[in-house]
């Protein structure tokens, strides 16, 4: 296969089949000749897509870089935008919130997702349909999940407060989305609910690649289900869990939909995370230059995690 692919790769250069085309009328002009000579090479296949992506990713990033070191009139201001945005209280608040939100989400997503993955890997009736239903929170639009939870979290008429109060678990209705010290944990819970199905399916894929012989050997030695999980399943899952963790970080810093739809970052910025702060600085305070500086820093941090993920995933698949 591999050899075939490589020999194929050589064909465009000097293979006999190209002979008939030579007899076609010679293309006119330099561009015409260039196209004729290269149209069966990789450039013309790949270039259009790359050009489109460059237009909508690379060019905007360069223009952000420029905006981040200029003021509203386009005059160069050095690092002033960076200094201002870093020193802003809102940035400190958003950074702390982001770290809390992402860390707490990931820990719970990994625990719940791994547990669910192990359950889904067991044999039981209706396994296929249960696997599909588990994915529902992840597949359904984020805004729909957000609105549904916002309604369930409603202080006066929400079903969650109703259950808690009718069981006497709380005296007064909990203000889930407006109490400054509860809002972020509540949003974290919604985010965990939305993303743990993704973890569970990835874990399921990892589980299915564990050699059955390991379990058979363990059972011969009289291992219990608990022994199997602790000494075979979890150690074997470690590489895929590491790579999922980085994916969850990348998704976590970008989880705008749930938070913005439920609280818009409030009350008093208590649920503001950095990705929403970029939006807020630009479109509520119309401070595009500081928002650009923030975007650049956000871009750099995300890129670090993306590169780490690609590196780790490549190493895992290479093994």
């Amino acid at each position: 296969m591999q050899n075939a692919a490589q020999s194929m790769a050589q064909t465009p250069v000097q293979s006999p089949p190209r002979q008939p085309e030579r007899s076609a009328p010679a293309p006119r002009g330099r561009i015409g000749r260039y196209i004729a000579a290269h149209k069966d090479g990789p450039t013309f296949f790949i270039l259009p897509a790359i050009a489109l992506l460059a237009t909508f990713i690379v060019y905007p990033i360069i223009s952000t870089l420029i905006m981040s070191v200029t003021d509203a009139n386009g005059a160069f201001v050095g690092a002033a935008n960076y200094v201002n945005i870093i020193e802003s209280d809102r940035t400190a608040r958003a950074t702390v919130n982001t770290i809390y939100f992402v860390t707490a989400s990931i820990i719970l997503q990994l625990i719940l997702g791994t547990a669910a993955g192990i359950v889904l890997n067991e044999q039981f009736r209706g396994q296929a349909i249960v696997r599909a239903l588990t994915l529902i929170p992840w597949v359904i639009p984020g805004i729909v999940g957000a609105m549904t939870w916002a309604w369930m979290f409603h202080t006066d008429y929400g079903v969650i407060n109703y259950i808690l109060m009718s069981n006497g678990l709380v005296e007064d209705p909990v203000r889930w989305l407006t109490n400054p010290s509860i809002v972020l944990p509540a949003l974290t819970a919604v985010n965990v609910w939305k993303m743990f199905p993704f973890v569970s399916i990835m874990v399921l894929a990892g589980l299915q690649s564990i050699p059955v012989s390991l379990y058979e050997a363990a059972r011969v030695d009289g291992a219990t289900f608990r022994d199997e999980v602790l000494h075979i399943t979890l150690p074997q899952l470690r590489p895929i869990l590491a790579s999922i963790t980085l994916l969850l970080i990348i998704a976590g810093v970008n989880s705008i939909t749930i938070i913005y739809a439920m609280t818009k970052g409030g009350p008093a910025d208590r649920s503001l995370i950095t990705s929403i702060q970029i939006f807020v600085e630009a479109f509520q305070y119309f401070n595009f230059n500081q928002a650009s500086a923030l975007s650049v820093m956000f871009f750099i941090v995300s890129t670090v995690f993306i590169v780490a993920h690609i590196w780790l995933d490549g190493r895992r698949k290479g093994q």
């Binding site: 490589q6 090479g41 990789p42 905006m67 994916l247 929403i276 970029i278 939006f279 995300s302």
Partner: peptide
Amino acid sequence: FEFKGRGVWQTLILMSHLLPSAALIVPLYI
């Protein structure tokens, strides 16, 4: 096709796939 830099281009495509959209809202708006 085998060509020089193929791996690099593929990695860049994967990176743009993973890039959080929040990093792009300001530049794309402009």
